[in-house]
Design a protein around this nucleic acid. Structure first.
Lengths: 111, 111
DNA sequence: CTCATATACATAAGGTTCTTAGGTATAAAT
DNA sequence: ATTTATACCTAAGAACCTTATGTATATGAG
């Protein structure tokens, strides 16, 4: 499990929040599967990046956790807090602004 | 002079190479101006990020430098080496792939 | 004419965020 | 029975940036 691109730097948190804004709750491993599926393998998260990110977001108060037993195992289900919902909107907005700027560099108007 | 977004992490080198693929030669300060103009202020490079990046790219062999006197001052003009031209293509390709993947997360097909 | 701002280079300390590498344990598949 | 998948975790180190600072010349405003 690897991440594939240093371009991902800085966008992991936004990606996690965005997915949780569409799924109500997700556990860590599930997030890595979702990202890989939705991007058809284009983006693969490393666990070394994912878990610390989740813990950080929980500490910040944007995510809440509920540990649930599945047979002899457990999963930690994450969901957005109220603060998290505000944060998604903010980060998605920032990302769109940035991507728009980046497009201006990548595709300069030939006008 | 500030950078505005942690999302820029990892894309600075690509941006510099892309601009030099369109301008033949540019000096450092000129690059910061160009980026700010082309993105209408959306992206502002910091000198603390720019100059080390230029030095690193020169060391890697993707850029060549020519120091030129302008009155009592000097400017360091950078241009793409042969290796640099190959690198631009590669990095632009990687960035497009990544952005395409990112779009799949941001705008999941509702189909 | 003087003082602030713009131009133009540079480095260094520190922080964030990742990679890489390891560790533990259960479940399923070959 | 052994490998692969699931599912959590941490730690050392690297990479890349921010912030702060330094130096020096040129220009513009009052």
């Amino acid at each position: 499990m690897y991440m594939s691109s240093k371009l991902l730097r800085g966008s992991l948190e936004t990606i996690i929040l965005k997915l949780l804004s569409e799924h109500q709750e997700l556990y860590g491993y599930e997030i890595t599967q979702l990202v890989e599926e939705q991007t058809t393998g284009g983006i693969k998260l490393t666990q070394g990046a994912l878990y610390p990110a989740l813990h950080k977001m929980e500490a910040k108060g944007t995510l809440s956790v509920e540990t649930r037993s599945i047979g002899n195992r457990y999963r930690k289900y994450y969901s957005l807090t109220k603060k998290g919902k505000t944060e998604v909107a903010k980060l998605l907005n920032e990302m769109e602004q940035f991507l728009a700027s980046l497009q201006l560099i990548l595709n300069p108007k030939t006008a």
